[in-house]
Amino acid sequence: MMAPFYKLGAFGDETALLIAFLVGIGFGFFLERAGFGSARKLVAQFYLRDLAVFKVMFSAIVTAMLGLTYLAWAGYLDLSLVYLVPTFWVAQLVGGLLLGIGFVVGGYCPGTSIAATATGRFDGLVYVAGFAVGTLGFAIASPLFDGLLGAGELGPTTLPQALGVPYGVIVFAVVVLAVAGFAGATWIERKMAARDAAAVTR
């Protein structure tokens, strides 16, 4: 067992921060490559014109998930040492809905707003300001959210644990769903493009 290196003491905090910076560069690079520094490109996902958000997100999820699975099976990585955010399913349901609404209103999510700002989008910078002010607003109001924040607490839980299904079965199911989703997404894009073209000629 060699990984995760930092958790197993291969290097210290300062090196971890340097890695954070380097990993961030890679993250920002691929976000921009994908076109996610552009609010119009991101939001087109929700108007079914360009489903790149889904395609990029699920290619990334499948890649990292398969990598984790194989490294763990090979005995190279201790999956239990990779940090798993505890599940509070009610809080995450409500928070997710709010983020979905805010995504269409604001045009970005926190990470992509930084990519947008770095590539000259002024609306990205305004989004960043809104997020900072919103964070302060939430902090001030946070005593009111005590109940919601703790709602649906299940502790750190994975889908295989919750469903009582072997890990590999869920991994396989996610891959199948992603591939079917990719085909469906491309079909929708073509259908909408044809519809838009017909609307112009009419």
Binding site: A39, G95, L98, L99, I101, G102, F103, V104, V105, G106, G107, Y108, C109, P110, S113, D123, G124, V126, Y127, V128, A129, G130, F131, A132, V133, G134, T135, G137, F138
Partner: peptide, 10 residues
């Protein structure tokens, strides 16, 4: 953009 950012912060 500002409103969306604030909503997403919550």
């Amino acid at each position: 953009a500002f409103l969306g950012g604030a909503l997403m912060a919550f």
